[in-house]
């Protein structure tokens, strides 16, 4: 019998309270991540990908954001499946860090400036498993070596400001992994790094994931990164998933106009001068994303969509199954496919 997936999000809706109104930042999110698999969550700024990731961890801004509907089924180390949205704060705390690790976007600020990095890596271990100081520090030093930092014993005694951005991100990854989580949530872990370091960090994450058979939820806006790291992808637009499926298939034959637009607006290496000579500009998706406070009726992408027709503006299209394991939120996907 196959084990249940590590993470299964069903109909998740997260509301933000702005003034007296509750506004859905993400709505109708369904995601499944089995063990050992990486799901990439892509979308532009404000599409709700980070909110989705933080909803899983229940780390939304206090009193501002709250999970309004849906459930987040999580299967932990003990094999028990629980709904994270129903856990009390104490139980949730023991899940964070121990069962689910998280890597943040900014390695510059996500480390405490007044402690050595070794102590910071050791900290979750001491909090969760009550390991002694020296034992936790030994584990930390071993892990610093595993994330590819030379001379770990010395590095462990250094402070964050003494390390480069890439090294700091390796440290935060080590911190997220120190308790051996079954799920790693990476919220744009490579965005703040330059391209060569990005590639190294992605390679590191892939290697660690393979070794530990972790599931990974990878949030990014970089389609190149998605192709590098993920098996499956979910494209988000204005708080909803608009298309999901295996990365290769989605990229080869997108079924939603937004995905098509995204892929079209990617620059290709070596094409720049040819395009300039031909007087072609890099294509982009016209318009800007609607504000979540002021959503158009019907399909949210319709105002920017070249395929939009009257039926699109009536109601939000369902996430229709377009092929095996593939779904798209567009009522005209058949015409697009053709």
């Amino acid at each position: 019998m196959s084990a249940s997936p590590v993470l299964k999000i069903e109909g998740l809706r997260t509301d933000f309270r702005i003034g007296r109104h509750a506004i859905s930042a993400v709505d109708d999110i369904d995601l499944v991540i089995p063990a050992g698999e990486t799901l990439a969550l892509v979308g532009e700024s404000g599409s709700g990908k980070s909110v989705t990731a933080r909803s899983v961890m229940r780390l939304l801004p206090r009193k501002l954001g709250m999970i309004a509907a849906g459930s987040v089924w999580f299967t932990g180390k003990d094999g028990q499946t629980r709904d994270l949205t129903k856990l009390d704060e104490d139980a949730m705390r023991s899940v964070r860090g121990r069962e689910i690790g998280m890597v943040f976007q900014e390695p510059m600020t996500s480390l405490n400036p007044v402690f050595t990095v070794g102590e910071q890596i050791a900290e979750p271990l001491r909090v969760h498993s009550g390991a002694t100081h020296s034992a936790a520090l030994r584990t930390a030093i071993e892990l610093i070596g595993r994330v590819g930092i030379p001379d770990p014993a010395k590095r462990a005694q250094q402070y964050p400001h003494e390390l480069s951005g890439g090294m700091r991100q390796r440290i935060t990854i080590a911190m997220a992994l120190v308790c051996d989580p079954v799920l790693l949530i990476a919220d744009e872990p490579t965005t703040a790094l330059d391209v060569t370091i990005q590639a190294e960090i992605l390679e590191l994450l892939r290697k660690l994931q393979r070794e530990r058979k972790m599931a990974m939820l990878f949030v990014t806006h970089n389609l190149g990164v998605v192709a590098e790291i993920a098996q499956r992808v979910a494209v988000m637009y204005a708080g909803r998933i608009v298309e999901t499926g295996p990365v290769a298939e989605v990229f080869a034959a997108p079924r939603h106009p937004y995905t098509i637009g995204l892929l079209h607006s990617l620059p290709r290496l070596g094409q720049g001068s040819a395009m300039r000579r031909a007087g072609v500009r890099l294509p982009s998706i016209p318009g800007v994303m609607a504000s979540i406070a002021d959503m158009p009726k019907g399909c949210q992408f319709a105002p920017r969509c070249g395929f939009a027709a009257d039926p699109c503006r009536v109601e939000i299209p369902p996430l229709a199954e377009v092929a095996a394991q593939r779904r798209a939120r567009c009522i005209r996907w058949r015409e697009i496919a053709a």
Binding site: L59, R93, R96, F104, S110, E123, T172
Partner: peptide, 25 residues
């Protein structure tokens, strides 16, 4: 600050945040 969020992400409680992160800083 992000490191406090990160620490909460690691499962730190309020006392921990206050005395490990608040006090030293």
């Amino acid at each position: 600050r992000d490191f406090v969020l990160a620490s909460r992400g690691m499962g730190a409680g309020m006392w921990h945040l206050l005395f490990r992160h608040g006090l030293p800083n």
